[in-house]
Simulated assay, not measured.
Amino acid sequence: MSIHHVLVIFRKASYLFVALSAGVVLAGCSSTMGNVKTWEGDADESRAAVLKAPAEIKVQQVNGRSQTNFLMDDLALDFDLLPGENHVVFTYKTIWAKSGVVRNGESKVHVVETAPQEATIDVKPGEVYRFDFQPPANRQEAEAFADDFSADIVNASKEVVATSSAWDGRSSGQPPVARTLVGSGGGDSGAEGGGTLAELKALWGEATEEERRTFLRWAFE
């Protein structure tokens, strides 16, 4: 056997080892990943409900808090929700393989993603909620589906508790704590400074992605 054949066998074995290792790591992640907590601070987690999102649903915000800090965006995730009204912002995203010849540097898939949707759920303690919609069968259906997308959210009894609609880019369901702080400073100049910072934070949380990019370009010019 020549050294060339030895190197080829070694290389194939290395690829196989890497693939198997990656599979074990991903399997471990999926089996040990806990639910995503959607709030900050302490709360009675025993009363939390669960919102199950399939891999096609990308939950972006819950009550104004970003939920997009994941390395892979093709995961089915479970989100813990506290009882009461919860405002959820999400999109629906599908990937379809391209047919025919793909040029160098060109993507091999079509990505179809809806505009952001919003839904407000009156969450009950310990309940399990799911997204309910009729998935498209092909890319053409997906593109038509994306133009007029809406999803129901159902409870464990399959009762519809909320129906999504197009997100206006502003409402977040976040309690107006920051705006309350703005008016609490009285005539004290130090409190006024804190109020301004709180108001800026509140406005940033309500800004759209395009408004944020425009502001950053202006700030760093």
Rank of each mutant, 00 (worst) to 15 (best):
R217V: 06
A156P: 12
P135N: 06
S2R: 09
E206H: 13
E85K: 15
E118P: 03
V112N: 01
I153A: 07
G105S: 02
F17H: 07
A219R: 04
L16H: 08
G28R: 05
I95L: 14
E209A: 15
P116R: 01
T91G: 04
Y129P: 01
A151Q: 06
C29T: 12
Q67M: 14
T163A: 12
D132C: 10
E118S: 02
T94P: 10
V25H: 04
A115M: 09
L51N: 01
E210P: 01
Q60W: 13
R213S: 06
V62S: 04
G126T: 04
A162K: 10
R213A: 09
A156C: 02
A119T: 00
A198V: 05
E143W: 06
A49R: 07
V89T: 07
T94F: 12
A198K: 07
F79I: 04
G193T: 11
A191T: 14
F145T: 04
V161Q: 06
V123G: 02
E113M: 07
V154K: 15
L20Q: 05
T120Y: 00
G100H: 09
W39Y: 12
Q140P: 00
F10P: 00
L197N: 03
P135L: 08
A151C: 09
V111A: 01
E211T: 06
E209P: 11
D80I: 00
S2T: 15
G190W: 14
G28K: 07
R47C: 03
G193A: 09
K201I: 12
L71H: 04
G194D: 09
F149N: 02
G195L: 06
Y15Q: 09
G173K: 07
V102D: 05
Y129G: 03
R103V: 07
F131W: 03
S66V: 07
S21C: 10
V154Y: 15
W218A: 02
S157P: 05
E56H: 12
E210G: 07
T163H: 13
T38D: 02
W204I: 10
T114C: 01
A198C: 11
E143K: 06
F149D: 00
A137T: 08
T32M: 14
A115P: 00
D188V: 12
A115S: 07
V24W: 07
L82F: 10
E113T: 13
D74E: 03
S99I: 05
W39S: 00
K98F: 09
A22T: 10
A137H: 08
R47T: 14
T196Y: 14
L203D: 12
D74F: 04
A178Q: 13
N138W: 05
L26A: 12
N35T: 02
A97Q: 14
A142R: 03
A49F: 09
A22N: 11
A13M: 09
I3W: 13
S46V: 02
F131D: 00
F149M: 05
P116D: 01
S184C: 01
T114V: 04
L75Y: 11
T94N: 11
I9T: 06
N69W: 15
F90N: 07
D78W: 08
P54C: 03
S2Q: 08
D152Q: 15
A178F: 14
Q60E: 12
F215C: 01
D188F: 11
Y129F: 06
